[in-house]
Amino acid sequence: MSRRIIACEVFKPYLDKLLEESGVEAVDYLEIRQHDHPELLARSIQSIIDETKDVDEILLFYGLCGNAILPLVSKGIPIKVLRVHDCAAALMGSNAAYRKRFEGNPHKRYHCLSYGERDDEYFARTSPEYRKISEEYGEDNADYVFSMLYDKFSTPVTYIKLGLDGEESQIRRKEEGYYSVIEGDLGLLRRMLKGDDDHVCVTLHPHEKFVGIYDYEEILTTVNRNHDREKTREE
């Protein structure tokens, strides 16, 4: 079965490893930062979907991601998306594992190999991002932004370790106590790559749309695109 893979670059080190195991395929990676802006992310993904031809399916390594995937449309090729809220659940290997960690701990931030690098670069006071905000809006505003985005959430930051090169040095680079390390699980990503597993993904067919469920099991589903119209007629 031929397919196209579109993924958030947060998954790059892990998909590179898994695809090495199962035979190399090209992946279209989209910037992590796009997750800050769900509408833009949806447009970026949809434009890749729209230009895709001659494959049997499209695998999307995204979850609900702040509802970014809800507007997506299949114009012929089925689209499979991870049945998760976000990348933290995907890297922990299950929604149940994520729920256990998340509930009662909303202060926690999660890092992993790709996110850790992004944070070092993106959030540090010495980063280009800080300098950019500081130059444009003043140091006081830059400090405020960084305190809201970064300092507000308590440490230790939960680091999801998946046994890849570079993780240990990343963890060591941070001051002691910064990271609380947990073992992740690539099982969910692996099963998604194997395909045909409704537990790990939801498939969007033409004439369907995604609908968020927002629990910790089903997460999202699909309904007929005419569903709302039919409902209105019934009423």
Binding site: R33, D36, H37, E39, L40, E129, I133, Y137, N141, Y144, V145, M148, L149
Partner: peptide
């Protein structure tokens, strides 16, 4: 601007403050 994707979270935080 947020809707159009011309500003991001930092700009929203700065204005909200």
């Amino acid at each position: 601007r947020w809707k159009n994707g011309t500003v991001f979270i930092p700009e929203v935080l700065i204005a909200a403050r």
